[in-house]
């Protein structure tokens, strides 16, 4: 059964009323929505560039062969990995620390 077993309602009520909980949820939510927006906008722009301006994407960089499309595409791959790292560093660092403090002791 997945509906959780005995709820600790006292703990729940204490956390829900704790201003640090409210602040943590607000900060983490804002952070994840901002990063989501960046990801979706970057990806949509990339696809739109391909859909609407192929000549721009095919243009070589300088006098070489490497094209805009290759540079932007590889930048997308690296950027996707980078934005993932950014979130995990803050979530597993700052946010988890704040959560641990919140769970460990009642608000002053």
């Amino acid at each position: 059964m997945t509906v959780p077993p005995a709820h600790d309602s006292a703990l729940e009520a204490r956390i829900a009323a704790d201003p640090r909980y409210v602040a943590l949820v607000r900060d983490r939510q804002r952070f994840s929505w901002i990063l989501t927006a960046i990801t979706v906008i970057a990806y949509t722009s990339f696809i739109s560039l391909i859909a609407f301006d192929k000549p721009f994407m095919a243009r070589p960089i300088g006098n070489g062969t490497t094209s805009m499309a290759v540079v932007l595409g590889v930048a997308m791959l690296i950027g996707i990995v980078a934005i993932t790292i950014v979130y995990v560093v803050r979530a597993n660092g700052e946010f988890d620390r704040r959560l641990a403090e919140l769970l460990a002791e009642p608000a002053a």
Partner: peptide
Amino acid sequence: LVGWPIVLFL
């Protein structure tokens, strides 16, 4: 690849 950060964030 781009689905993965979405899974992570949301």
